[in-house]
Design a protein around this nucleic acid. Structure first.
Lengths: 239, 239
DNA sequence: CAGTATCCAATTGGATACTG
DNA sequence: CAGTATCCAATTGGATACTG
């Protein structure tokens, strides 16, 4: 039930990566998360017990190092773990090209905010605090409003309660619209032109927002295979 | 228990590939197997019930096509399935670099023969029938001797019973030695020089055998990370 | 914050035997 | 040849509550 009993290098790799959630935990580590609750925010639907278990397996497999960091534990990829980057890239590139259709349950605003908050282009942003607000009118009230507070490149917070700071720009759209813009399935300009997404704030801030908010690392991958779902989450048929 | 509930393209890919054996079935299809029992030979430790189940899942996922081919079923990759080639390559490259240590149970002579038989360099081989014999004195009698009978590029058989044809060259070694030569962990020349592997047959046939028998597609990948196990299957410590 | 402990229903997949 | 049927032990992982 564990190994494959094969000398094939693909089999030897899958022995380590084929368990549910494992690859997503590695993805989070590659994205720069180092602490347990930070990792949890990248895999919000994974139970903490299971995350703990996977981190131990990955440590045993020589992919993750668990380090004592004061009274917390710090997780670090080993060189072998970092060498998984091309594997993770290949998986993401295939996914964006051949699995672009999402189900209802895939639209998770907390994950979107978590992804966006660590991909801001701080060089393009003004000095001082920038507050980005998001409103998704189609989402249940409890998860409808979000704030990203960028103080500096190493201090960016996400919260779902109004932090009280003046907002630099507000983005309003259906959640699937923002998700597909982030994924690169739908262009900012197209969504704005079609009225599927709109901005509130100074004209200048509205103009530069798309530079501040970078897109998914896979957004630039050429699309093929199937048609993206856009707008309201209804499925487009395969072409 | 099935999806991850994430819009992340890596998660969407793993929803299709994270089940045990699935990636190895795709590997077999990419290697050119098209029929059920042909696929089985590439995953000898997988039960036929499970192989059947995985082929159905892959068909449902749009990766495999099941075609009626006379009274048998033919399996074909879809364009999306063929597009998994870079993913499979990345997995194999990582495995060869970071998981080169094999366990006892990974040394499977039937899989080795199956891999080798489809990687012959027919252009380097003479016209007419070429018979390669293998003897692994360390393996239990029932799986100690193997023959690869190459009639032409589209007619190559593997068997574990003497087919009775004159043998062109015989290779004798411990099974791990041949496996590590195939994987590229150990060079032909080194194994021959150290007496870990020897050949029987005409001097000319011995000389050209390494051209006929090509190595694993991952044999040329640069090694790093850990030290290969060679020779008798005992473990070398990590460096 | 960073996990651990416990429980349990559901799934998984190996084994074996059988079939047109 | 190309699978299907059945059974069952073992594992898995989600849920919930708890801890220093």
């Amino acid at each position: 039930m564990t190994g494959y009993g094969q000398f094939c290098p693909i089999a030897k790799t899958m022995e380590v990566l084929d368990e549910r959630w494992t690859v997503l935990v590695v993805r989070e580590l590659l994205c720069g998360s180092h602490h347990f609750n930070e990792l949890r925010r990248g895999v919000p639907k994974m139970s903490p017990a299971l995350l703990s278990k996977r981190l131990r397996s990955l440590a045993k497999a020589g992919i993750v190092l668990r380090l004592d960091d004061g009274n917390r534990t710090r997780y670090e990829l080993t060189p072998g773990g970092r060498a998984l980057a091309p594997v993770i890239s290949a998986l993401g590139e295939w996914g964006v090209q051949w699995r672009s259709q999402l189900g209802e349950e895939d639209y998770d605003p907390s994950l979107l905010m978590w992804d966006m908050h660590r991909n801001l282009d701080h060089d393009a942003m003004p000095d001082g605090r920038v507050v980005l607000a998001f409103r998704f009118p189609d989402v249940e009230p409890a998860h409808r409003e979000w704030w990203i507070i960028a103080e500096s490149s190493d201090l960016v917070d996400v919260c779902d309660a109004d932090p009280g700071f003046p907002v630099t720009v507000t983005v309003v759209s259906a959640l699937p619209t923002m998700v597909h813009v982030w994924r690169g399935d739908l262009r900012w300009a197209t969504a704005l032109r079609d009225g599927d997404l709109w901005l509130e704030g100074s004209a200048e801030a509205q103009r530069v927002l798309p530079q501040w908010l970078r897109l998914s690392p896979f957004a630039a991958v050429a699309r093929q295979g199937d048609v993206a779902v856009i707008g309201d989450g209804s499925r487009s048929p395969h072409t």
